[in-house]
Amino acid sequence: MHELALTESLVGIVVEEARRQHVTRVSAVVLEIGAIGQVEPESLRFCFDAVTRGTIAEGARLDIVTVPGAGWCLDCSKTVTLAERFGACPMCGRHHVQMTAGDELRIREMEVT
């Protein structure tokens, strides 16, 4: 979906942080992206190269750590794995599941020189 806007926000945060830390170059950025979240990692990568051009993060490697989906099933009273967003509980097949992981969209860290 709006990966370009997300990438602009991502690069904005990275550049801001790099400036604050008096860094000369950002060589890698590590993201945590939920497996059943709202972003398409490939699209993010594509945008990342374009958006970082001309910034301190130009040419930086983008590492994406995938966070698997999980949820709390109200009927089973336990944490279950979720293969799809708003999916059913794999134990009981019902949809009374609150997503607890897999929706992440976080910048974990960056590697700088």
Binding site: Q21, L105, I107, R108, E109, M110, V112
Partner: peptide, 8 residues
């Protein structure tokens, strides 16, 4: 490594 830990 600079920790950022911020939501996009």
């Amino acid at each position: 490594i600079v920790r950022i830990e911020r939501d996009i």
